[in-house]
Amino acid sequence: MKNAPAAEQPNPTPAGATPVQPATGHEHPPDSPLSIHDMTVAYQRKPVLWDVDLDIPEGKLIGIVGPNGAGKSTLIKACLDLIPKASGLVSVYGKPYRRQRKLVGYVPQRESVDWDFPVSALDVVTMGRYGKIGWCMPVTRAHKQAAMTALDRVGIADLASRQISQLSGGQQQRVFLARALAQDARLYFMDEPFAAVDAATEKAIVAILQQLKTSGKTALVVHHDLHTVPEYFDWVIFLNMRVVAFGPTREVFTQENLHKTYGGKLTLLDQAAQALVIAERGGS
């Protein structure tokens, strides 16, 4: 399965996942925006994601849903090499992620940084251009302009010079989104961009996602509000330490899959993971 060409088998279905039909008549390009092959991720020996095997279709908005501790952020971070993988391969547009960083944009969780940091909104958005600017080179006017455009797209250009602690939660989230837009990527990873934002910001983010989709870009978005999933996302990944289901929203967004993903009890996977840790600590 690891070497199966994506063109022939667009949706390899790992054990336990609901079988998914390929999107009607749609052929995936051989270099899918993101292919994850048999990836397992562990924190200090404790597996948090088991055998993830996915091929993400191009030009779609993909929601990642699952309960707390399901490994949603972990999936993103492992794809971005922010945490080590116990096993598996990730390729972006047919090549290893390491060589394709310029094609990837990232919106981390808002709480992951200290918003008391002495920088302005524009400064943060400009950071999205640093990869293009390169080592030790100064930020040119053109890059500042690009950052300004990105701020304008999320609707807060007037707050460019505001220190970031003086922004509301929704505005801070928009700053992060603008920074990813400034990266000018083709594949976007967004970690809970809708968490604790106001209605206006939610609307702005949805509009941006639609714009990204229309221009042929792909976005994977960790999402927690199940009600809006069918409205916002074309495809869904149901995640609970493994891929429970993956496919077009109208096909996989079913009561059965929701139940499988959110079914209250400790899954055997989690029990096994904890047993591994306890054994490691000498308590077997």
Partner: peptide, 18 residues
């Protein structure tokens, strides 16, 4: 510039390949 990015958001810096 690099230190500023590192201090503010090391995760983002790493994702960009710094």
């Amino acid at each position: 510039k690099e230190f500023k990015l590192l201090c503010f958001d090391d995760g983002f810096a790493q994702s960009q390949g710094w």
